[in-house]
Nucleic acid binder design. Structure first.
Lengths: 183, 183
DNA sequence: GTCTATAGTGGGATAGAC
DNA sequence: GTCTATCCCACTATAGAC
């Protein structure tokens, strides 16, 4: 009569996923191995398989928690600003730079969509869409932000580059274009 | 009396680097291992070490050839267009999508700058800078293009998304902003 | 310039005992 | 829920013979 037969999300499982996320953020996605994770939890790697079916499911669970946080952060930003686009962009940038390894894990490979809570991807995308009122524009803004973040994280900009100026330039351009398109 | 003592770039070495680049492009950067590369060349992995000091040098050599090609492609584009920015963006996009794994290898981690020919990084960046006449704007455009490319390669856009429209939107915005700033 | 042999490291995952 | 023992895999790199 248990309700969840296939995937009982127990407290222990949540602890494991939280530790996995910590590991990713502290040492990068490559450091997330069953052995290293077990070590962090003070157990042996094979024990993890009593709680998680395999490594892919573990990664998907970590990604889901990250997407939830992104959605929450952007929802808060879009609701408290006279310039929603500027606020959403700033919040997105702040999240990515505060948890860069998690950001990369989420965004630089295909999402494990079949293992994600339904609607979560859309929830994370909604605030920006609301800020710019247009899907195509939302995608252009997302691409600009993602590009700035990834190039900064990959240290592809020259050493002294003024990245704040780059952000202002891009957001101003996309905002200005939105304004003129609306008239 | 040989001129190059440390790094004799022999014909055999060039063949190896070319095979490495093929391997990257066919199966991704992770597939570039000494064993797989040797297999492709019909030899054994340890033999490679007679021609290349280690794997890092091999990767750097592959990256250098890719950067040369990017520079060449963008130089050609900027010289043959009435709208240099549009032409450079299109050429950059085309290069990335035609060799996606090489593009990622070059752009999603720090460049091995100490193993690259001097000036090569700048040469690859020059055409875009020439097209927009301003470093900050050039970086914003680069970020937009890089973001569009990386999100497409990572399959992060929704299935039916009109990416051409996204490109037009972003480039038009950044171009328009450049025009109004110039007046 | 290529080979064999090998060292050393690290990974995912399973079986079966407790 | 955790353990030990284990399998099988793959990787970079070196030594030394030919």
């Amino acid at each position: 009569m248990t309700e969840l037969v296939v995937k009982p999300v127990t407290r222990r499982r949540r602890e494991i996923v939280a530790a996995a996320r910590d590991l990713v953020e502290l040492e990068g996605a490559d450091a997330l191995t069953m052995r290293r994770l077990a070590e962090r939890l003070g157990i042996r790697a094979p024990s993890l398989y009593k709680h998680v079916p395999d490594k892919a499911a573990l990664e998907a669970a970590v990604i889901a928690t990250g997407l939830e946080d992104i959605a929450a952060v952007l929802e808060a930003a879009v609701n408290e600003a006279s310039e929603p686009l500027v606020a959403v962009a700033a919040a997105y940038r702040a999240f990515a730079l505060s948890q860069p390894h998690l950001y990369r894990l989420i965004n630089d490979r295909p999402l494990p969509r079949e293992h994600l809570p339904p609607g979560l991807e859309d929830r994370a995308a909604a605030p920006l869409l609301r800020a710019v009122q247009n899907q195509t524009r939302a995608r252009a803004v997302w691409a600009f932000a993602h590009g700035m973040i990834m190039l900064e994280l990959a240290q592809r900009f020259p050493a002294g580059a003024d990245l704040d100026a780059g952000w202002r330039e891009g957001i101003a351009a996309l905002l200005g274009h939105a304004r003129s398109a609306a008239t």
